[in-house]
């Protein structure tokens, strides 16, 4: 009994458990009197760096968001804990056979761990192409999430849970962009 529970936690979690736990996190934050949205932290970091002196959008009291920055610190620790204390070893992500075939067509090896070496291995990151991919991805994520007024947590989870039509529009946008990238742009890049 105890062993199977430990096994459950140490192996990759099933979707139904993960989804339930995300809702639990959202409700804990709600009961703490805050609203769940991660990308707001990117704006707060700009404010901390002094952007509020030049750009009005960043001129706000960052202390109102200090709880969210602490949440960010927690997510970093959570990633470390999951890898080092809550997993037997880093397992290849069990994606579908069909996806592995698609990866082959863009010259990606089947998964060996959580992330593709083609993108995150430093031997690739320090090439011009590798660096541009990660930096442009970052620019799009930062610019797009603030333009849309939220990211996956704010729109797809909190917004849809509150039946917000604007959030549904944002999520449709996420999929337009994601499908364009995965189906059409990635094959051109690799």
């Amino acid at each position: 009994m105890t062993n199977s529970l430990i096994d459950f936690i140490m192996k990759p979690w099933p979707w139904w458990f993960s989804g339930t736990m995300i809702a639990v996190v959202m409700f804990i934050i709600t009961f703490f009197g805050k609203s769940f949205g991660f990308s707001s932290n990117l704006r707060t970091i700009c404010t901390l760096a002094g952007a509020g002196k030049k750009v009005k959008f960043f001129d706000f009291d960052w202390k109102t968001q200090s709880w969210n920055l602490l949440f960010l610190v927690g997510t970093f620790i959570g990633g470390f804990v999951a890898k080092n204390f809550l997993s037997y070893q880093e397992e290849p992500v069990a994606i579908s056979e069909k996806t592995i075939e698609r990866l082959e067509q863009i010259n990606f090896a089947p998964p060996a761990g959580m992330q593709p070496a083609e993108l995150v291995d430093w031997t690739n990151v320090v090439t011009l192409k590798g660096f541009l991919i990660l930096s442009i991805a970052g620019l799009l994520i930062g610019f797009g999430s603030r333009y849309a007024g939220g990211c996956t947590s704010g729109h797809a989870i909190s917004g849809l849970s509150n039946l917000q039509v604007p959030s549904l529009v944002a999520v449709i946008g996420f999929f337009i962009g994601g499908i364009l990238m995965s189906h059409f742009i990635l094959p051109l890049l690799f």
Binding site: L140, C151, V169, A170, G177, L180, M181, S182, I185
Partner: peptide
């Protein structure tokens, strides 16, 4: 939401 969301989606799928 549609413009910002699309830009975000491009970055989400790339990274």
């Amino acid at each position: 939401y549609i413009f910002g969301g699309t830009l975000f989606g491009l970055g989400w799928a790339l990274a």
